[in-house]
Simulated scan of single mutants.
Amino acid sequence: MSGDDLAGGYDLVVFDLDGVVFLIDKPIAGAPEAVERLHERNTAVAYATNNASRRAAEVAELLTGMGVPARPAEVLTSAGAAAAVLADKLPAGSPVLVVGADALRAEVTEAGLTPVESLDDEPVAVVQGYGPEVGWRVLAEASLAVRAGALWVVTNTDRTLPSPRGPLPGNGSLVAVLRTALDRGPDLVVGKPEPALFTTAAALSHAERPLVVGDRLDTDIQGAVTAGVDSLLVLTGVSGPADLLSAEPGRRPTFVAADLSGLFRPAEDAALPLRAGEAGGWRVSRDGGSATLDGSGDPVVALRLLCAATWDGVAPAAVSGASDAARELLSSWGL
């Protein structure tokens, strides 16, 4: 390892996928090159995704087709993790009602359990993951099964999925349907922000210093904080500058960058928060419970400076701009 840049301080980089490496089926600009650079430096790479609609081999094939070489062993999915949890809890062959895509059914089968679709099959558990074809009928069967005593396990609770057209309903939105019908939450959530995917990736790679890279504060970053590892938020997916400014302590990343190119710049250029008060052409001044941004320059530098103020008690709504560039930037962030 080399400490010359951010990535050089770590022996494993764990990437989220949607919003970090690709959007739906297209790579994010610079992502293939970033992964290739890590491979060239012999830095271990892993992919941890909450999306339960593809199996590890399918994800690896998808990535490779995008110019991001990946092996199935490098991919950890919430579908595989959920099936493994159920296999630990239930006798072999137990009937499990699957709400989700074919990939989740395949993982349940491979784990030695029996996927079913109806309450008539007497399921002892319900496993729920994202699937674009999930509809009312299977949700109704799942509701009945849980009411009858079945264990309810969900792969993740991401409310949205990133897409080129904007955020789309994710598994968390589908879980909310059952949550409303049942008037209670799931018995177990397997994927991020639970730390299991990250700790498993580190164990498989024998990594002592992993770095998590994600685009969501409520899953990727919170999961990293829970796992006790450093994290980098990239602004290519769901969570934006306004979200970062108002982030709770348990959802605050170690670093922030516009995209994956930040991995190959000095760590001090991405570290959070930036308490200097002035850097890169920007200046932040505080007056009691308010803060003012002045100057111009790289938006990420301004964001890092402002995090020092908002994480120290200034409400994001109490941040104003003193220059045209500052006012335009804050407006673009929705402030």
Rank of each mutant, 00 (worst) to 15 (best):
A227M: 13
R251C: 05
L233P: 08
R251L: 04
V234E: 10
P249V: 12
A271K: 10
S261Q: 13
V238H: 04
A196P: 07
G228W: 09
L233D: 08
H206N: 15
L217C: 02
S205K: 15
G281Y: 12
D183P: 03
D243C: 05
P241Y: 08
L263N: 00
S261F: 08
A276R: 08
V190G: 07
G250F: 09
V213S: 07
L188I: 06
K192L: 12
R252P: 14
T254I: 11
D259W: 06
A227W: 10
A276V: 09
A271E: 15
A201M: 13
A202T: 01
T226N: 14
A242H: 11
T199S: 15
G185P: 11
A227L: 06
A257Y: 05
E278P: 03
L217H: 01
A196Q: 14
V190K: 10
P186S: 05
R286Q: 12
L233E: 11
P253S: 10
D220P: 04
L188E: 12
G191N: 02
P210W: 06
E268G: 11
P186T: 06
D183I: 01
L217M: 00
V225T: 15
R286T: 13
G223L: 05
S246N: 05
L211M: 07
R251V: 08
T200Y: 03
P249Q: 08
L272H: 04
H206D: 14
L260P: 00
L272S: 02
S239L: 02
W282K: 01
A247S: 09
E248G: 04
A257N: 09
D215A: 05
P249M: 04
S205N: 14
S285D: 15
S261E: 15
T199G: 07
S246K: 07
